[in-house]
Design a protein around this nucleic acid. Structure first.
Lengths: 196, 196
DNA sequence: GTGCAACTTGCACTCAGTGCATGATTCCCG
DNA sequence: CGGGAATCATGCACTGAGTGCAAGTTGCAC
């Protein structure tokens, strides 16, 4: 899955995780607004300018996926059995992804609790993931653009709504229960639609 | 509906609309990022500092509701007949609101088309509206918090998904058709739930 | 080891957003 | 009608996000 490990690739991932960890640690302590980018780069031991080589902005450091995540969600999407209903596939991929990324979900949750100013960001999972999910669903379902977007965005809303209601003390399985409940409650009319 | 017309209230609304109109005109021409706040205040003939007395930030000038809107949506919400299913009520309030605010919906759409950088803002209607809708639905439905949020956020997603698919040449009724289609396609399981 | 490509860094700059102090306008009440 | 209080507009100075550029550094291939 990983390329081979040219030194550059490895260092980049290490740096990404170093900066990410430093930033989220500071933010859980002080809150998002109270942590400046200068604070982050000082804690991570890199230059201010390098921060922007890794992250497009301050919010990105909270919500961007780990460098390994795209491979992860690509695997989760492709391993869904043919014939499985689209809505079920989306639910299971979300459960699989949040399981694999449980640590970061918990971290994000703690940052949010310490940062009321992030309320109304609704970016629990990176945009890139939803783009990939949309592309995948487009191939498998043959839905028109409108109903495709409605379906994927409905899934996104279920997740984004579940997270604020999630008591992190219940662990990642607590989130999974909320996701299942959400998917059962709000359902697009894809009667017996199959994902090819 | 309006207080009486103390001079101050009238002037504030006039200034709000003046700044709003100037900003959105510039943004349709050049795009969101290419218009600075200095450009806006110059065009509107107010001081830079006064801009922030009216708007919390640059995005607010695009997405904030008109000063008269809260009274409008309050009326739309309260005039829904008792016994109407919650999902229908939300749909009809959205249609009523977008009808009354059709001009601004069209303006916003044009700004978005000129400003790819606004993609992924999903703030078609102001947060305040959705807070009001949530409060109203909480009173009428007696739903628990989770299912309340799932329902209201699903409605929000239907609207936010409809707008990008909306061909503004079809006028506001074109948007209404998309909203109806969306509400029919994604539906929360509120079987015979009535809004008291 | 030499040369190329990728990465890091510092510097200088623009612009969003805020706190504070001050002057102008409106309002209210005697 | 006049004067004090509340509200609003404004200028100024400041912090911090984000970007372009050019120079230095490091890994990689031959």
């Amino acid at each position: 899955m990983v390329v081979a490990s040219p030194v550059r690739e490895r260092k980049k991932r290490e740096t990404w995780r170093l900066v990410h960890a430093a930033a989220l640690r500071l933010m859980t302590e002080r809150g998002f607004d109270a942590v400046s980018i200068d604070d982050i780069v000082a804690a991570a031991g890199i230059s201010r300018r390098t921060f922007f080589n890794y992250f497009a902005g301050k919010e990105s450091v909270v919500f961007d996926p780990d460098p390994d995540d795209p491979a992860l969600w690509a695997a989760l999407l492709t391993e869904r059995p043919a014939g499985e209903p689209l809505w079920v596939s989306l639910r299971e991929v979300l459960i699989g992804y949040t399981t694999a990324a449980a640590d970061r979900m918990l971290l994000q949750r703690r940052v949010r609790l310490a940062s009321p100013e992030l309320a109304g960001c609704s970016r629990e999972l990176a945009d890139q993931f939803w783009v990939a999910a949309r592309d995948w669903a487009a191939d498998r379902s043959g839905l028109d653009e409108l109903h495709l977007d409605l379906t994927v965005n409905a899934a996104r809303t279920v997740l984004n709504t579940s997270c604020p209601h999630w008591d992190a003390d219940t662990g990642i399985t607590g989130l999974h229960e909320l996701i299942r409940a959400g998917f059962a409650f709000v359902t697009p009319s894809l009667p017996e639609r199959i994902t090819s």
